[in-house]
Design a binder for these strands. Structure first.
Lengths: 220, 220
DNA sequence: AACTGTGAAGACTTTCACAGCA
DNA sequence: TGCTGTGAAAGTCTTCACAGTT
């Protein structure tokens, strides 16, 4: 019993003071880093060490962590396993995130085969395409359906997030299918903005913009 | 002559007041959007209309644009072509960005075939891998070299940005090769932080974190 | 009336400085 | 020559309110 980590239950994101997206993103990075440390059998870590690995500042890391619970030990640091479990519990409550993919082209196939998901919290539960050649196939263990079956299948499989990985010409059409399917969160890899009802959150990832913004950003 | 757009020359990013990365990213989105509008033969656009398409606020758009030059017409808006050329000229000075790719797996191949680059400012000039099966091949018109030739080839082809698209087990090794090759800007798609000298800028894109942060982010 | 451009206010984020302790 | 947690200060980014233009 003495080793058990207390798990906080009856507690959802909605209950707690809204945590900014920026903080969430950093905390997920801490979890990633803690996984690596655990694999290296490092059981203690200080905010300074996390800072060195992630490139952030140690104070910021302590502030971020203290959003959740105060579990650091002065003079010692954090226990990696305990810290990882605590952060994960607050953000994810051991839920799996169920993703549905629209568009099984080059990028879509790469996402289906993406190894980072396997051991993690993300599961692609269905893929959709318009091509006869792809419908019915399984790629990376995920079945490909005709896109017009999306509303039925997404609801049945309880998809949380939809991914747009189609050419920009059809991305608005696909976004409309997603809204129809009841998806409230969309990651859009097409290089084109989509318009959706206000309640639907969209995260755009445009490789062109990512590369160019790094290129244009002169340091300091 | 009356139609000519004055081009500001003798002017580089380094000369002007540093423009924050956030602004750069938004301005690139405006350029993207203006391209679409131009294709639809819409020659005038107001900040309000850009706001509706991009989901940003109209004031922010006007502020961003006024970082560069004051070219809006009260009561009318902006001329799409002129605005696009102005923004592009300030950010890119019609340079092409020369990208080198490390890792020709699923994601790497998808990047080599990414259609968004073709008509744009980005050119992948070389790819590297360790696999005998891939070295010497051409994918998406880009030649694949053995990774140990990177320092020589990156310098010869004057690569601006390096992309890490290898499994996380080898990402630090690849990052070291990149530094050795003189690359100062890195986009890292591996789900693992890399450590590099301070002068090297790294932009991490971890699909797992992108998806989870959207999932955990409860709106408003 | 319909738009741009902007100083100032407000909101948000990071860093500083230090109390207190496995 | 440790380390966490935190109130306050500093810094950054966004929005407000409105002057100016056609």
């Amino acid at each position: 019993m003495s080793d058990t980590i207390p798990i906080v239950r009856n507690f959802t994101n909605a209950d707690m003071m809204k945590i900014p997206r920026k903080v969430i993103t950093r905390v997920l990075l801490y979890i990633r880093t803690l996984e690596v440390l655990a694999k290296e059998k490092r059981y203690l870590v200080s905010s300074r060490q996390l800072a060195d690995i992630t490139g952030l500042s140690d104070v910021q890391i302590r502030k971020d962590i203290s959003n959740f619970r105060k579990i650091g030990k002065p003079r010692i640091g954090y226990r990696t396993g305990e810290l990882k479990r605590t952060l994960q519990n607050y953000l994810l409550q051991d839920r799996k995130v169920r993703v549905v993919l629209f568009g099984v082209g080059n990028l879509g196939s790469a996402i289906l085969r993406y190894p980072g998901f396997l051991q993690n919290k993300i599961k692609v539960v269905a893929a959709f395409d318009v091509s006869r050649l792809k419908i019915g196939k399984k790629i990376g263990g995920v079945k490909v359906y005709s896109v017009d079956r999306a509303p039925e299948i997404v609801k049945r499989l309880r998809g949380d997030i939809g991914i747009i990985a189609v050419p920009k010409e059809s991305c608005q059409e696909v976004a409309d299918y997603m809204v129809l399917s009841g998806l409230q969160k969309i990651v859009n890899f097409a290089s084109c903005p989509v318009s959706v009802p206000a309640k639907v959150q969209v995260r755009n990832i445009d490789f062109t913009i990512e590369f160019l913004s790094l290129f244009c950003d002169s340091p300091k």
